Simulated assay, not measured.
Amino acid sequence: MFRTHSVLFFVSLAACQTIIAADSDDKKLQASIAESAKKYETLYAARDAHGLAGLFTVEAELIDSTGTIFHGRESIEAEYKSTFANEPEGKISIELVSIRPVAVGLVVEDGVVTFTPSEKKAGPVERTRYTATHVKQADGTWLLASVRELEQDRATPHERLQAMAWLIGEWHEEVDGTSIATKWNWSKDHNFLVSEFTVVESREKKWHGSNRLGWDAERKQFRSWIFDSSGGFGEGFWNEDDGGGWSVNLSAIDADGVRSSSKIQYTSDGANAIRVTQQDRVRAGISLPGSSHRIVRQPPTPAGASTK
């Protein structure tokens, strides 16, 4: 919950160099703040909750967007520990909106912090607006007295789809004598992932189709639309599984008007392969047995080689 907050504090400290320049020309003080900022970087990289809590005043507070208050260093330290234990690692960037001295020894900072998970499948990019209050101490240093999370800015569809970018590339699968070649890539506007697939059955019957995957802002989950060259179509709703894989609940209607549905699970099977498991298969009201097979990522075509 406060993984974004925990990063914004570094920028808050770095920004204090500007604050001190207005308050004093003492280069030693500027160096002291710069040293504090470097210390924060080190503590955060080490995931040192105790050290990070020490950057706050004893009676400091953190307030999240729901109004939950973490009051005092001990509570703040506990929240850091929870963050490091439960949230993915990642990198941050800060857009500093304003720094406003509001009284002697008191400064308010507004900004936006962007958190990007280290692993794309760990979740979407998150942006959060915040306000932080700094208090100057008797020894000339600055500590955080209050940090309030205002709201999360909406992530763009492209940013959310980073969690599904593992699909990008060319894939091949063989299932009961049927060969399927699929190529995923970004749409031109980068707001969808799109694929083209070709299916060859028994080396004779050949058909093709397309798949478009996007973010459903109403349902707050990924949604896909499938169309094949025979006139059939389908749609699916995606969910991330506890083990880190993905599953899609798919429903479709073929060109003859026959309805089918299934749950398809995708799990990693090595660096360049995916295990696909189909469950709850139903066609025309009749239950069908499940199945499992492997999809293999194809290596890039060598430069200058023919693609025919």
Rank of each mutant, 00 (worst) to 15 (best):
Q17T: 09
P117H: 06
C16I: 03
T131C: 04
E41M: 14
P300H: 06
T66I: 00
V199L: 10
A163D: 08
D110L: 05
K121H: 14
T57M: 07
R223Y: 10
E218T: 13
L150N: 14
W171G: 06
A252K: 01
R294C: 03
F192Q: 14
S118G: 10
N239M: 15
G270H: 01
S210Y: 15
A15K: 00
D280P: 05
I180E: 07
V97C: 06
I69E: 00
A181Y: 14
D48N: 06
T4Y: 04
T116Y: 08
S230D: 15
C16Y: 04
G51L: 01
R283D: 03
T307L: 08
S292V: 04
S118T: 13
V282I: 07
I92S: 15
W215P: 12
G140K: 05
A22S: 13
L213M: 11
E41L: 15
F233M: 13
R275I: 10
V135T: 10
I33G: 08
T131A: 05
K28I: 09
K27R: 14
W142D: 01
A60L: 02
H50S: 14
E95Q: 09
E196D: 11
G54L: 06
T114F: 02
F237D: 10
L43P: 00
V282Q: 02
K308C: 07
I253Q: 13
D228G: 05
V108I: 12
V97Y: 10
E61Q: 10
S93T: 12
D153Y: 13
R275E: 12
K220D: 13
E204W: 08
K39R: 14
F197G: 05
S287P: 03
D110H: 08
K27W: 15
G245R: 05
S24M: 08
G285L: 10
D242H: 09
D64S: 01
G123I: 07
I20M: 08
F2M: 04
H158R: 13
S98L: 01
A46W: 02
S75M: 01
G67D: 04
H50A: 12
A145P: 10
W186Y: 01
A132N: 11
L193F: 11
W171N: 07
T178I: 11
A132L: 04
D189P: 09
T182P: 06
V7F: 14
D228C: 06
S224E: 13
K220R: 13
S12R: 07
N249Q: 09
R73E: 07
F2Q: 01
R281W: 14
R73W: 10
V113M: 11
A305N: 02
A217Y: 15
D176W: 08
Q298K: 08
W166M: 00
E235V: 09
I226K: 06
K206S: 14
I295V: 15
G290D: 10
W246V: 09
E74S: 12
E126A: 14
P289T: 05
A37D: 00
